[in-house]
Amino acid sequence: MGMSLLGLRRRGRLPAWVEPGEIITAARGVSVRLGGSLVLDDVSLEVRAGEVLALVGPNGAGKSTLLSAFAGDVTTVRGAVDLHGRRLGEWTSSEAAMRRSVLLQQVTLSFPFTVADVVRMGRAPWSGTVLEDSDDDAVAEAMAATDVASFADRRFTSLSGGERARVALARVLAQRSQLVFLDEPTAALDLRHQELVLSVARRHAAGGGAVVVVLHDLNVAGAHADRVAVLSRGRITAAGPPRLVFTPGLLSDVYAHDIQVLDHPNSSAPIILPRR
């Protein structure tokens, strides 16, 4: 099959494994302008293999835009994004797809494919490579991890919002890239599945992967992320372990609301509450 014409079969350089602790992707002085206003202003952020990094901040702070910049979806007016030690633009689409996967907030599908078909689409970057042989394993594993295997034969378009979100996550996991971007993966999910998704992220990082996840819930971020980056008006206000970053003063300032941070009785995660 000569798919090279349309960009799917031109096999590029297979990814090298980035050792835990090494930088896997980095934004370097990135500014993004959307509709005339500066949505990201000189943002620099390094992501290392083996960590879960949460992007938090109020609405409109630029979290999703930063994720888009990392994914290469928006053009930067200044600065650049590195992936695996090279500029993002130096990788072809399929080479980038072997190195990072992206779960968007809005999951859509124009035609009624089955759940199994959708998850299998995550294997597209590997078609024609030696790793194509592990397609079936990757699909089955991803469906098991996200608790969707029981409805593998149903049409995606017939699923509820929460089920769709998990199927989309399964597709991302099936891609088996070391670096994973998740844009609000828990927005449509109940508590059990919210914890399921974040434990999947934790496990991915424990296995040497890197996860960058946009989260709204500061408690979820504080409980599951190794590091958090707080965005406010297109800039990074603070980045580091949640214990150090989530202080009442900083959060109250960023969210323009009086916020208190309490100690959890039997875990190290902070409890963040607005003062009512």
């Binding site: 099959m1 000569g2 798919m3 014409l5 349309l6 960009g7 799917l8 994914a71 290469g72 979806d73 072809t92 689409s93 399929s94 080479e95 980038a96 797809a97 072997m98 990072r100 996967s101 992206v102 968007l104 809005q106 859509t108 599908l109 124009s110 035609f111 494919f113 078909d117 959708v118 689409m121 995550g122 597209a124 970057p125 078609s127 891609q175």
Partner: peptide
């Protein structure tokens, strides 16, 4: 030749790009 890419395109432009199209 473009059949497989068209499948991916049904996920939307951005996701198709993230999958290497």
């Amino acid at each position: 030749l473009s059949a497989r890419s068209l499948d991916l395109l049904s996920l939307g432009d951005r996701t198709a790009r993230h999958l290497g199209v």
